[in-house]
Design a protein around this nucleic acid. Structure first.
Lengths: 252, 252
DNA sequence: CGTATACTTGATCGTTATCAAGGCCTGTGG
DNA sequence: CCACAGGCCTTGATAACGATCAAGTATACG
């Protein structure tokens, strides 16, 4: 990543359309000229139902994306990390709320300008579609998790996600941080805080992970974790192997 | 074997009305020149992991879209109905499998030609993005359902979906058909066939629905159904009302 | 240092999965 | 038209997983 300082001198215009000096090579580069904004812990970036006037690039920190049901139950549909785009809704209103899990720094872009700019570049269009596809794929994985997996599989899947993201930056690092609260994790995995806590303890007792303070954890047996996550160990050779449909029916 | 150009110039030859413009006015119109293909009950259109060379417009019948987990458990992530697009994956491989629930008729389009054509029309680009947004919104609703809702709420949500789609065509019709099996419904709602069956019986006993044969059902109290679905009755006035967070914590 | 908040652990209950059996449509062949 | 076979669906009994209720403990923060 590039240093934030070098870009901080950007003029404070909200809706600058990026100049075409050098062709922007990725969606994120569109945001470079925009000023950095801050958001404190627990603050809301936007609410579900708000006019979707802007979208954002998350530069630093973690956001949670969630919906609130009529009776107050909360479902966290995802966490966002640096580099992610926020609010890429092609509808007029946001379909979820976004809150800061940690102190957050981000850049804002007007939706109109974004659409114009992306629309004028075949390269960026492809990237936007690829981005949406990834979001869609993630959403479907989450549906699989919520449909089929038991508490242990869910938590292992989550920890594995975090580990993989961590290792994109720092190979061979086995300590992942979990900046979000247990309640956040519970609302993301469709469990209760008690179950999350108990399952975490169970994984610790099995020697698969080891807590490092309250908000980070060391992965001791990544292979084991991957196995317990129940994703079939990513045997990515094309077709998913044809399964013996004998014990295929079992929900947990 | 068609070039993008030939399709683009296939100006509104549709027997449908409208067509004041030379440009195709909706994504579906792209497919009009393509031959109708058939698919028998239970046949597979494509497998998860297959090269995504084509995409399709569903003309008639119902498809199920699903993923198979490593241990053989199946998750149906959606059903598709006439007018829906199938396989709009922007990745190189399909991320799910598609099978015919009923006899199906559809039109095929090469992915490359589709991308070229859509890419050259701002109007179509917007429509594609809107379509993907709707898919995404549906996926998130499904996550909410799977995270939070109990069996009754899930089934009511499903029946309501079907009712709404039915009434798009035929207002004031209260009989919806359920061409899919109980197992399909179960795998879609994250339940078992037994629970689906029991819950259906319960709704019948409450006088909310009334079975019409095995594969269709009459909705007697749509309001009640909507209430039981637990979606907060779509009070679409912008912000979701701020909830008293007292009883907000309850999972089922 | 003390209080509030977040997390952990324990006991119990409830919803739904699982196991098991019986009923009901559908299609097939007599 | 009936008999029968094989799904598919329904219903019942039981059990398990995770939610809920209830303390108790650690951590953050003033």
């Amino acid at each position: 990543m590039l240093s934030a300082n070098s870009v901080e001198q950007a003029q404070a215009y909200n809706d600058v359309v990026v100049a075409f000096e050098a062709e922007p090579i990725c969606l994120q580069s569109l945001f470079l000229k925009q000023p950095l904004e801050q958001l404190g812990v627990g603050r809301t970036l936007f609410f579900e139902g708000d006019q979707a006037k802007h979208l954002f690039e998350l530069v630093e920190g973690v956001l949670r994306i969630f919906k609130i049901m009529a009776d107050g139950r909360r479902v966290i549909t995802g966490f966002l990390y640096p580099g992610d785009l926020v609010g890429v809704s092609l509808r007029n209103r946001y379909v979820y709320s976004a809150e800061a899990v940690t102190p957050v720094r981000l850049r804002r872009f007007s939706r109109k300008a974004f659409e114009d700019t992306v629309g004028s570049s075949p390269e960026l269009r492809l990237q936007l579609l690829a981005y949406l596809s990834d979001e869609m794929a993630a959403a479907q994985d989450q549906m699989v998790l919520l449909s089929c997996k038991n508490a242990e599989e869910r938590l292992c899947s989550f920890l594995l996600q975090r580990l993989q993201r961590k290792q994109e930056q720092d190979r061979s690092c086995s300590v992942v941080d979990l900046p979000m609260s247990r309640l956040d994790i519970a609302d993301y995995l469709g469990l209760t805080i008690e179950t999350v806590s108990r399952t975490m303890t169970k994984l610790t007792n099995k020697g698969i992970v080891s807590p490092v303070g309250r908000h980070s954890i060391r992965i001791l047996k990544a292979t084991m974790l991957s196995h317990l996550a129940g994703d079939g160990d990513e045997c990515d050779d094309g077709h998913p192997s044809v399964i013996s449909l004998d014990k295929a029916r079992r929900r947990h």
